[in-house]
Amino acid sequence: MAKTSCCMKLSFLILILIAAAPRPSFGAEQTKVVVGVDAPTLSDLPLSAALKKDFYRAEGVEVLQVLFRSGPTAMQALVSGSIHFSTGFGTGTRAAMTGAPVKGIIGFNNKPAFILYGRKESGIRSAADIRGKKIAVTGLGSTTDYAARAILKHHNLDPDKEASIVAVGSDGVFPALQRGSVDAAVLWAPGFAVAEKLGMVRIQSLADILELPGSGIVVSDQLIRENPVLVKKFLRGTLKGFHYVHEPKNKNEIVASIAKDFNLEPDVAETNYRFMLSILSRDGTISRRSMENGIELTRQRVKTSEPAGDLIKKMYDFSLLEEVQRER
């Protein structure tokens, strides 16, 4: 009952924030933009850095963040025009693959920041022990869902027959694992460092088995078409965030910020920082192999015979990013 009440309050808060947010007006010059974000995560480190260092304001853009409990909900808001940008990169590009009018415009990493952890109390010591167990993900069809399925298949387990994948919402994954209502969960930074401190069993990092697009930014086709100037301003601010995060002299400040934001011990914050830096793109681009792997993984659930090259054009548009990079 408490969980239901919490979810209702969060959903109500999201509706209030969207209602209060500046409504996109694609035909007019804008300074305020609304960004839909998922659960707090270090995967969006360049975005977070750009916000904290006022890089967007330097480009004449004021950013309001709106929290969504799942990527599909954020995509609905993006397509309807309630928000300008979304960090639901995986969910958004998969939706574009099936015809949704959205595109990925900048990627944060070529490797996914997802790791499957299990509870010792559930008898889990290795991937083989996952058979017949419950695995928590943020939502069915979400990136964490795809991550769980890819990891299970890598270990020759059928995700539909030999495990039970349970959707608990972005804010419910770690609590579900911690209290034992599930046996395993797909976690992201900084959750995995905390999980290890609590004695959870690290089963498999998706980054170790597959090059795959991680986080990034998606926008509607309409915004790209009708207000490319605004999109480029946002991209410039985000690229400044990339450069700030990669600059070695900023390490201590970033680690301290991570520790404060996620209530972590300094050593845990630094472990997370090093991991994210190891998979972070340097300039917002992602490899073709990464995109093709994402397509092949999605084909397992979304039936399409379209060639990968055609699907990439439906899912991604890096033309404005390339323009910004040339202007630097």
Rank of each mutant, 00 (worst) to 15 (best):
F234Y: 11
A21F: 07
L78H: 05
Q30I: 08
D317P: 06
N110L: 05
R301F: 04
G71Q: 10
A20S: 15
S205G: 15
S281H: 00
Q204R: 09
A128R: 12
Y117C: 03
W188Q: 07
S86Q: 00
D145I: 05
D129Q: 08
V201T: 11
A308Y: 01
Q178Y: 14
R23V: 03
T73Q: 15
L212P: 01
G90R: 05
S281F: 00
L297N: 12
A195Q: 07
V194A: 13
A74N: 13
R69S: 12
P248I: 09
A308D: 08
R131H: 14
L239V: 02
L187T: 09
A28R: 04
K32G: 11
V229D: 10
Y117E: 14
S122F: 11
R328F: 07
N263P: 03
K197D: 15
V33Y: 11
I151L: 11
A147M: 09
F12S: 13
I115N: 09
G81Y: 10
L116R: 05
W188Y: 14
V231F: 08
G214V: 02
P228L: 13
T138E: 12
A150Y: 07
G71N: 06
L212G: 06
E121G: 15
P213T: 09
G123H: 11
V37T: 11
I83P: 00
E121C: 09
I83K: 09
P112I: 08
I165R: 13
S319E: 11
V245N: 01
D283R: 02
L140G: 07
H246K: 06
S287G: 12
P24Q: 10
L45E: 11
F108N: 01
I135W: 04
R225L: 04
A95L: 14
G118T: 00
G123I: 06
L152G: 00
D54A: 07
D283P: 08
K303N: 13
